[in-house]
Design a protein around this nucleic acid. Structure first.
Lengths: 80, 80
DNA sequence: CTGTGACTTTAAGTCCGTG
DNA sequence: ACACGGACTTAAAGTCACA
């Protein structure tokens, strides 16, 4: 199972919820814009430190991020 | 805040709960034993893929792992 | 505003050992 | 069964020009 893909989707979902652009999120997290882009598309395998940075920038705890990721994964396989 | 420290404590807590040694956990997760040791001591910054590998090896979802980590962090600062 | 490939630098992760 | 270290290989971090 490709978790990075669902994690990326969760990041995007929370980012849009708080109406940030990738650039704004990147700046808040102290990361490059293109790196955040890569994460949202599931092309990156971020380290714990960056998972935490992004979580804090979004104002969401990491466990919530991964709970969201799991929900997205379930909805994908459910295919409603 | 040093999340890797609390994440490491959460790994150890769940590992002891299912009565695995570090070596057994490492083998199940496809990782090196010294690496798992480093993670539990908060000296490592593991990637998402390995966070997932460890979670699966422990039979615990990632969001639960991080919820545990947060509980441990809270109990530390509470110091009851 | 975002996706993408290519790239260099840094850190992750392995393997050998010790007490 | 675990902590810890050194040397090593591999992958992630981090950046860029361009679509």
């Amino acid at each position: 199972m490709d978790l990075s893909k669902y994690y990326g989707a969760a990041v995007r979902q929370h980012r849009l919820l708080v109406r940030l652009s990738q650039e704004e999120l990147a700046e808040r997290a102290g990361l490059d814009r293109t790196y955040v882009s890569g994460i949202e598309r599931g092309r990156r395998n971020p380290s714990l430190r960056n998972l935490q940075n992004i979580s804090e920038a979004l104002g969401v705890d990491l466990d919530v991020m991964f709970a969201t990721a799991r929900q997205i994964a379930l909805n994908q396989s459910g295919k409603n």
